[in-house]
Amino acid sequence: MPIFMDRHDVSDSVTAEHVAQLHKEDLKIQDAFGCRGLTYWFDDKRKTAFCLVEAPNEQAIRDMHDQAHGQIPHSIIEVDAVVVESFLGRIEDPKKNQDSTLNIIDDPAFRTIMVIAKESARSESSNVHQSTDLLTAYFEAIHYVLKTNDGRVVRETKDLFIVSFESVSKAVKASLEIKSKSHELRFDTIPLKIGLSAGVPVTEKKSIFEDTINLAERICAIIPGEIIVSAEVADLSGSDNLNTFIKAENIVILKPDEEHFITQLMDFIDSTWGDSNLKVDDFSKPAGLSKSQLYRKLKTLTGKSPNTFLKDYRLKKALALLNKNTGNVSEIAFETGFTSPSYFSKCFQKKYGHSPSEYLPANA
């Protein structure tokens, strides 16, 4: 049976005890709806509660809540239990709460999400890989820092880490330690960037922490700097007496309006980048800016003009497709919005220092 996580936005007067009582009422009648309440989280500061429920469908959860206490969820998404545990640390009630008469769990589901991305160096090609010893040392160093700062690795590939932290302080501290280790161990051939964002597991999106992960990945990918920090992470870090860390030279702190701009722009580009008819003039409307305002804003944030930004975005997509061996050079050129394979190859060579064909696994 599938597992769902729902979100309840509650009033300021609601306490952890109130939420525990509502959860208890759910458990009394859950069998009638084919549901099984696994656990819940409550964030008193943000006045949000999240229930993890095994159920035949979303409607069964709504009906159960409605009959039990009338508090119908604002949002429901289907989740994977392993992923939930990776992000939040548990999929059942904490042991200290399991034997209590009223199971009060004052545990927020708010998390700081770290994205560690290995950049594609200009001199790197699929035919020139780092040594096994260097890569092993690189991964060991990252895992050590994450473990000592209570970071939970949610996803890991050779180019990407997604990590969940309960403490924003430890997330920022881990970021600085990773960069310090990188310089100390001379991982010059493995350039990496770190993006930090923070949020809750269920929004209007369909995946757990989707908004938070999207922002962390996007700021990591497009904003120059070694560590890019969202406005909320910076604000929370300040309240945790981490001003010393936040003011470090290698950290870039975004403002709320800059995050909004990035989100609006990238939502549009993510859905249109493969269209060869797409023009940078089209960016202005979704961003709510004039052409000149868009140019200045994008140049300030990314150091790139709209034309260069779109071209580099497409080249990055093309690089991923080439490494996956999804087609030949011409096919990938057209798929990523280039109208000419020769122009695509020229741009690719200039960006990465190698022709596209060198990246194809078949030619390795």
Rank of each mutant, 00 (worst) to 15 (best):
K311Y: 01
T300L: 08
A174M: 07
P356L: 13
K95I: 08
D188I: 03
I104S: 09
E119I: 12
L146P: 00
T336E: 08
A141C: 10
L27R: 13
R155L: 09
I72V: 15
L146T: 04
H129W: 06
D107R: 09
L38Q: 08
V10M: 04
F50I: 06
L176Q: 08
E259T: 10
P94K: 02
S175T: 13
D211T: 11
E232V: 06
S276L: 07
L360G: 02
K247I: 01
K299P: 00
Q71H: 13
A121W: 07
L254H: 04
I178Q: 09
C347M: 04
Y313I: 03
R7M: 12
K351Q: 15
L185K: 15
S164F: 05
V229L: 10
A174Q: 09
P286D: 12
L242N: 15
Y144T: 06
G199A: 02
S164T: 09
T189E: 14
E78G: 05
D257V: 11
E124R: 13
N214R: 08
D133Q: 06
F334K: 13
I208W: 02
L88E: 01
L322K: 15
I178H: 09
A81T: 10
C51R: 10
Q71R: 01
K311H: 01
F268G: 02
V163I: 15
I223P: 13
L22G: 08
L215G: 03
L315M: 06
V53D: 07
E166G: 11
E258Q: 15
Q21N: 10
V280C: 03
A198H: 00
A364C: 13
N127M: 08
K279A: 09
A68E: 05
G195V: 08
V168M: 11
G70T: 06
G274L: 01
K45F: 01
N323C: 06
V153W: 06
Q30Y: 11
P191N: 06
D267W: 04
Y313R: 07
P201E: 02
A117V: 04
D235K: 15
I246T: 12
N241W: 04
I222R: 08
N363R: 12
P224S: 07
G238R: 15
F87Y: 14
E17R: 11
T48K: 14
Y359V: 00
V19I: 15
D99W: 08
G151I: 05
F4T: 08
I262V: 14
I194M: 00
A117R: 14
T339P: 00
T263M: 10
D99H: 14
L146I: 05
V200G: 00
K297G: 07
D107W: 07
A20V: 04
A216L: 06
E335R: 07
D6N: 15
S207L: 14
I105M: 05
D106Y: 00
F110R: 05
R36W: 00
S237N: 01
R122E: 04
T112Q: 01
